[in-house]
């Protein structure tokens, strides 16, 4: 297990990165934290001819609030997001998910955008971004475009980026007052790949009715998937036991997971429902917004 040879570039600015991408296109991969990329290279599942190391592009490392969104740059480490006061305050769902992303040594280097671009349907961050209805800022030498999560995540390990494009920033809407968010995950071990998971965000109106629900399941489909039938069921109503049970059943029905060596599709569908029930009960039992 040793990576194949590659040409190595270490640009200092985004412009240089984009011009290298324009030049090398599909031959190239971006090296940020490398926590998903390098294992694939060591196993030679992936042998890019060119690596563009963006770790010198310090301008791409930021977390800042602007226009009701938290903008997170391409070089922002997961560990930085995990310990960020801004994230803790504005993005409680992301904060709750962060400890589940790999282990400390992964988060010290792995980036938020890198994990999103990896587009793993069992990844925590794609699920959080989907539930938050994040905006993905995609850059290339041709210009910039912005897409939403459902456009960004195409299928398992496949995103919508063109060969000359990179994910330059992700913009995550800040939590509304009175909103509640819960992140849950089932894994065979305390760290490592998940079997199933759920990012859930529910907002309530002054009367205590659910005004907005966004639930995104991990491992319930080929991409991280919004549970729209569950959301529809919750919105406009009050969270009570009957609704919670119904929501769980709807989630199980909505899930389209696949079998693998760690869990059957039936189990994943079942626990997707159980995670929805658990998350909603936690929201009921837990007065304050947050984890």
């Amino acid at each position: 297990m040793k990576p194949a040879a590659f040409k190595y570039f270490r640009p200092d600015t985004l412009e240089e990165v984009l011009s290298l991408l324009a030049e090398h296109g599909a031959e190239a991969r971006i090296l940020a934290g490398g926590q998903s990329l390098v294992p694939l290279m060591n196993m030679r599942i992936l042998s890019p001819a060119v690596l563009i190391d963006i770790n010198r592009c310090r301008d791409l490392a930021y977390l800042r609030e602007e226009g009701g969104m938290v903008a997170c740059g391409a070089l922002t480490r997961q560990g930085e997001a995990e310990t960020s006061a801004l994230v803790a305050d504005r993005l409680p769902l992301l904060a709750a998910a962060m400890p589940h992303v790999g282990v400390r040594a992964n988060r010290n280097f792995g980036t938020v955008c890198g994990s999103l671009a990896h587009a793993d349907p069992l990844g925590e961050l794609p699920s959080v971004a989907t539930a938050l209805e994040a905006r993905f800022v995609i850059a290339s030498a041709r210009g910039r475009r912005e897409v939403d999560a459902e456009e960004f995540f195409v299928s398992a390990l496949t995103n919508c980026l063109e060969p000359d494009e990179m994910l330059a920033e992700v913009r995550l809407p800040v939590a509304a007052a009175g909103g509640k968010s819960v992140f849950l995950e089932i894994a065979n071990r305390a760290h490592g790949f998940a079997v199933a998971g759920l990012a859930a965000l529910v907002e309530f109106d002054a009367g205590g009715r659910c005004s907005r629900a966004r639930l995104s399941a991990m491992g319930a489909g080929d991409t991280t998937a919004r549970l729209r039938t569950v959301e529809a069921l919750l919105e406009g109503g009050t969270l009570d036991d009957a609704v919670i049970r119904e929501a769980g059943a709807a989630a199980t029905k909505a899930a389209e997971p696949s079998d693998d060596v760690h869990a059957s599709a039936a189990y994943r569908a079942h626990v997707t429902g159980s995670l929805v029930r658990k998350a909603l009960r936690q929201m009921l039992g837990n007065g304050e917004q947050g984890r």
């Binding site: 194949a4 040879a5 040409k7 599909a26 998903s36 294992p39 694939l40 196993m43 030679r44 599942i45 992936l46 042998s47 001819a49 990896h118 793993d120 069992l122 195409v154 299928s155 398992a156 390990l157 496949t158 995103n159 980026l161 063109e162 060969p163 494009e165 790949f193 693998d260 060596v261």
Partner: peptide, 24 residues
């Protein structure tokens, strides 16, 4: 852009490098 294989599965096959000379 797509990664060739699902990362979480242990790859049974050693994947080639598209005929490129790997030590270029």
């Amino acid at each position: 852009m797509t990664l060739i294989l699902r990362a979480r599965f242990f790859p049974p096959l050693r994947c080639g490098t598209d005929g490129e000379d790997p030590v270029m």
